[in-house]
């Protein structure tokens, strides 16, 4: 029985230690960031890998999510005779929740795992050590550019996701179902508030960007330098990022709805 509690205690302690280590990494990234801003081309390179290469999966999923929202929304709304409100439903669902959240989940799977695997592999093959021995800080050269790229990329991807999703909903609602085009857009515009809905969605995606990137970076940086260690770290990146995104989403939403 005692060993059971010991295990729980040990697990909690190791989680807290890792949280502390991740926070330390976060602050050392911030302190090295002036170096990496001076050489912004490194960050641009990472924006390519995290952003441009995630574009296809984001656009395709957004389009399907929008179409499904359109269909489902229509079948529910038509029962109440308000199928013109389909635009509002699709837009609000995307801008407030699905845009930032699904983008962050896809980002964790596509870009987050790539970051963890890459950094873990660099660690396993002593590339990070070699860099340190060349008097170049791996945090400044490798970690910080990826961090900033993640923060820049995520809101852009989330915006693209929401916009493409709305277009997907439009394709289903207007040409396929025959909802009036004018009503679709005007209802949407009357009910989606820029300052409230769109800005809040944007803030969410920035927070998710920070969370997902720092988790991916930390898992890679902290991975045991073996093939097994890296593969486990990659899995952990997806699991931890997804949970963090959903948890943070709840916290942020409850803040945004009360304020």
């Amino acid at each position: 029985m005692l060993s059971f509690f010991e295990k729980i205690g040990g697990a909690i302690r190791s989680k807290i230690t890792r949280l502390g280590a991740a926070t330390r990494l976060f602050f050392s990234i911030i302190s090295y960031s002036s170096d990496s801003f001076k050489r912004f081309n490194l960050t641009i390179r990472e924006i390519y890998f995290t952003g441009v290469l995630s574009l296809v999966i984001i656009v395709v999923s957004a389009f399907f999510v929008g179409m499904v929202l359109g269909l489902q929304g229509y079948y529910t709304l038509q029962k109440y005779g308000s199928s013109e409100a389909i635009g509002v439903l699709v837009a609000l669902a995307l801008v407030r929740e699905l845009g930032p959240v699904v983008t962050a989940l896809l980002f964790a799977g596509r870009a987050g795992t790539a970051i963890t695997a890459e950094i873990g592999l660099m660690k396993a093959t002593e590339q990070l050590s070699a860099m340190e021995m060349m008097a170049v800080s791996p945090v400044a050269r490798i970690v910080a550019p990826r961090f900033w790229a993640g923060i820049i990329t995520m809101p852009l991807l989330a915006s693209i996701f929401s916009m493409v999703g709305v277009l997907g909903g439009y394709v289903v609602a207007v040409p396929l179902i025959g909802v009036d085009e004018g009503a679709f857009w005007s209802q949407m515009q009357a009910n989606v508030d820029f300052n409230y809905d769109i800005v809040n969605g944007f803030i969410k995606s920035v927070v998710f960007g920070i969370a997902c990137t720092i988790i991916a970076l930390f898992e890679g940086y902290d991975a045991p330098p073996t093939a097994e260690g890296v593969s486990r770290a990659t899995t952990r990146t997806v699991v931890t990022s997804s949970l963090a995104v959903l948890g943070l989403d709840f916290v942020l939403t409850s803040f945004m709805l009360t304020v």
Binding site: G51, V52, L156, L157, M163, V166, I198
Partner: peptide, 22 residues
Amino acid sequence: WVGIFVALGLIALMGLAMKVGN
């Protein structure tokens, strides 16, 4: 490529603000 990506993101954001939002 990065330029195209950032431009797309900004266009999407503008689109959300203008076309979807108020």
